[in-house]
């Protein structure tokens, strides 16, 4: 019973704040609403007994990515400036597209998902099992993707530095940022 109440609170938080996040006028407010959505999603993982996934979601999404977003917003926006909207027919057609997609997918889900699925409530996944499946090379073990992710992270750090580096060349058209 308590689990249901917590789930419905989290579901309402996710739905309301994800709609507010895409319809807010201020970009910093959207980022804050996105933070609420991410934390409520972490709560859903906790409710599903994925404790490690909860920790990863809080650390990577709500910690790292949100810091990146807020830094980028402060670097590229004047504080308090509202965003331009698209033309109203574009907003209306996109809203129609999103709502129709929602209805079609919702219909398919309600029609097809068996309501009584085998929900085995396991214990918390032990760290030992997790480490074995992350570091093994057999079936259902994930050493190779783990290593590939590490190489990808390295490449993306190098690429991000290379892209965002301030060029020290003497190009006069470079400094257009003061507006």
């Amino acid at each position: 019973m308590a689990e249901q109440i917590i789930f419905y609170i989290l579901a309402i938080v996710i739905v309301v704040f994800s709609i507010l996040a895409v319809s807010s006028k201020l970009v910093i407010r959207s980022a804050t609403y996105l933070l609420f959505v991410l934390i409520a999603t972490a709560g859903l993982y906790l409710l599903l007994n994925f404790h490690y996934l909860f920790a990863v979601q809080i650390a990577v999404y709500a910690g790292g990515i949100m810091v990146l977003f807020i830094m980028a917003i402060f670097l590229t926006h004047k504080p308090g400036a509202t965003m331009n909207q698209r033309m109203s027919w574009k907003v209306k057609s996109s809203a129609a597209l999103a709502v129709s997609g929602l209805l079609i997918s919702g219909y398919i889900i309600i029609k097809n998902v068996v309501k009584v699925a085998g929900y085995l409530k396991g214990d918390e996944l032990s760290m030992q099992d997790l480490g074995h499946s992350m570091m093994g090379t057999q079936k259902y073990q994930y050493l190779l993707p783990f290593e590939v992710i590490s190489v990808l992270l390295l490449a993306c750090i190098v690429g991000a530095i290379l892209i965002a580096r301030k060029e020290t060349g003497n190009d006069p058209k470079e400094n257009v940022k003061d507006k």
């Binding site: 709609i19 980022a31 965003m83 996109s94 929602l102």
Partner: peptide
Amino acid sequence: LIMMFAGVYGFLTRKNLIMILISIEL
């Protein structure tokens, strides 16, 4: 599902690049 289509709506309606990225995160 609702979260995903909120993201689709934001992706299509917003002009700001950071807002598009927030929608992709959703």
